[in-house]
Design a protein around this nucleic acid. Structure first.
Length: 416
RNA sequence: GGAGAGGUGGCUGAGUGGUCUAAAGCGCUCGCCUGCUAAGCGAGUGGGGGAUGAAAAUCCCCUCGAGGGUUCAAAUCCCUCCCUCUCCGCCA
């Protein structure tokens, strides 16, 4: 959520941002609603003040005076009730619209409408040529490492079983990444994957992306699509020690996504599934240092991909492709030989104070309390990394063989 | 799942309808005192929103787990929810 002061202080920036994001809303309506709610609240408060004053007089008054004063107080009370009701209505009217306004985009983010307009920043690693090119599913099925057909019978489409050495690789990679992050000041965390509605509003997934989230009907709980949600909410309603910033966490969790509206898209194998495991970095940061922190998270992501010997490119995500809460976002896309293309394996966002305002996370600096900035980045999206590892290290005979260096991380030299 | 007890400021803890503007203690900050340290003395010490103002500031509203209700008036009474603890049952 944005600071509504922007309507008074920096309307130009506000309008420009809407333009960049290609959103058309009635700004003058917003301004009116904002003014109305302030006015309504102020009027209610005035009456409340009178009422409070009178209440104190009543407490001191003797019996004769009391009856008279009570009558007056009763009037004020009714008056206040109707005014504060009105104030609440006005507040709600404004907030309903305001909560949907996305974050202010960083000046350095490219302007554009779709992922086609994302800006490639760099391309690292050599793309190999393959004879008898196979995709990860074909390799995985043949070697008995992946089964999506059986998973479809058990759970429906977009689920998978992974077996044997692939599981071994998953746990080895998670362990490698957790160690690396722990060495770099991230606190390893296993957060809850079921959360209340509030955590999803706080992180900006609600109300906009609600259709992507699984709901547990009986208990009013939701399955997180990323541990970002539970990590961000960890410090909700807190004032963090300024000297403790940045507070960095590395969360391991299973992630659940409904993938509504993706029918027919990425239907092969385990690329786009309803359930996958992920290690996520999350940082609570001094607002003045969030840009550096963002670059830092990206660096960590790149190091991991380099260690894993996966060719990749880094993309600066354009205005139209940013989520509501991000001011700036870098995606890393790994080379996927079977698709002859780079595909997203990490995403790293600076959400500035957008989540912090909703979650009420602040710090105290020189006596002033101010909102902190939050950032998140994927350290290891297990499923997609497994795909990249399988496909980029496949052999002509349909086996998969890792370099000596890489096999130290996977714990497996050859899949056959 | 059953039975019970609770949630008050950074912490401990008093407070069962109006002077609560939340006692007291601890902690913290500043000052005094002391050769240093401790003790002592004094002052201050949460958060959010708003009005006026160039600013400094002054004033107002909200906040005792959350949300409703009763009342002229709620930390205090009533309802719903959340959380914590104890006992029983079940359980990885």
């Amino acid at each position: 959520m944005l600071d509504s002061q922007i309507l008074k202080n920096n309307l130009e920036e506000f309008n420009e941002n809407l333009k960049k994001r290609d959103i058309s809303i009635d700004v003058s309506l917003l301004i009116d609603l904002d003014e109305n709610r302030r006015k309504a609240k102020f009027e209610a408060e005035q009456i409340r003040a009178e009422q409070n004053k009178l209440g104190k007089e009543i407490a001191k008054a003797d019996k004769n005076e009391k009856q008279e004063l009570l009558k007056k107080a009763s009037e004020l009370s009714n008056n206040f009730k109707s005014l504060s009701e009105k104030a609440e209505e006005e507040e709600e009217k404004f907030l309903d619209l305001w909560i949907k306004i996305p974050n202010i985009i960083d000046a350095s983010s490219p302007v554009g409408s779709t992922d086609e307009d994302n800006k490639e920043i760099k391309k690292i690693g050599e793309v190999k040529e393959f004879k008898n090119l196979r995709d990860h599913l074909e390799i995985g099925e043949t070697l008995g490492l992946i089964n999506v057909e059986k998973a479809a019978e058990v759970s429906g489409s977009r689920f998978s079983y992974i077996f044997g050495d692939l599981v071994k690789i998953e746990f080895n990679l998670v362990s490698y990444v957790m160690n690396k992050l722990s060495d770099n000041g991230f606190l390893p965390t296993v957060p809850p994957v079921l959360v209340r509605e509030n955590a999803l509003y706080g992180t900006g997934f609600f109300p906009d992306d609600a259709e992507q989230v699984y709901k547990i009907q009986n208990d009013e709980l939701y399955l997180v699509g990323t541990s970002e949600v539970s990590l961000a909410a960890l410090h909700g309603d807190e004032i963090l020690e300024f000297d403790s910033l940045p507070l960095r966490y590395a969360g391991f969790s299973t992630c659940f996504r409904r993938e509504a509206g993706t029918y027919g898209k990425d239907t092969t194998g385990i690329f786009r599934v309803h359930q996958f495991d992920k290690v996520e970095m999350f940082s609570f940061c001094d607002p003045e240092k969030s840009k550096e922190e963002h670059e830092y998270l990206l660096t960590v992501e790149e190091e991991i991909l380099n260690d894993l010997e996966i060719p990749y490119r880094v993309v600066d995500v354009c205005s139209g492709d940013l989520g509501a809460s991000a001011a700036k976002k870098y995606d890393i896309e790994a080379w996927m030989p079977s698709q002859n293309n780079y595909r997203e394996v990490t995403s790293c966002s600076n959400t500035t104070d957008y989540q912090a305002r909703r979650l009420n996370i602040r710090t105290k600096k020189d006596k002033d309390t101010s909102l902190i900035h939050t950032l998140n980045g994927t350290a290891l999206a297990v499923g997609r990394i497994l795909i990249a590892l399988i496909e980029n290290n496949q052999q002509e005979d349909g086996s998969v063989e890792f370099s000596d260096e890489l096999s130290k991380l996977t714990g497996v030299k050859k899949l056959s």
